[in-house]
Design a protein around this nucleic acid. Sequence first.
DNA 1: GCCAACGTTGGC
DNA 2: GCCAACGTTGGC
Length: 166
Amino acid sequence: MNPPAQRAPARFWLMKSEPAECSIDDLAAAPDQTVPWIGVRNYQARNFMRDAMQPGDGVLFYHSSCAEPGVAGLAEVASSAYPDATQFDPASPYFDAKARRDAPRWLHVDVKLVAKTRLLPLREMRQRPELATMLLLRPGNRLSITPVSAAEWTAVNALLNAPPAR
DNA sequence: GCCAACGTTGGC
DNA sequence: GCCAACGTTGGC
């Protein structure tokens, strides 16, 4: 008899969201606790979604451009990539006049809540040697989606379960 | 509001 | 293909 299909090794990601746009509480309140990750307009971030993400991948949900930037919860990739409808909508801030319906430029995945956690502040992340390799912490990093290694994922989860640093 | 670090654009 | 100008991100 056949063994069950082997699941591809899980991958992990950090995804930035401005809480004024979509916070962890907004994600928790969304239907099915799932939101479409619309509005990505950076090719590298798009390519991660298009080429590398798989449903079930782990996501660190990160609050950016706010008073307390940091990881605010855990989520998972809930779909494969599909065209971002806002690129075709002239009324949307994400409208892209060069996008064509028969050749969409911008894609996105759906993201589903796994758990709201304590806020792990960026400030605290910078103090942790075990997180020093994270792309998020690299000077000048602006990518809204970055891959996270298994070791980084484990380390962040440990910190999320630990009491806040003083 | 400042500014560093990029990414994108467009002239050539 | 080069590269300067410009725009954006995002912490501080």
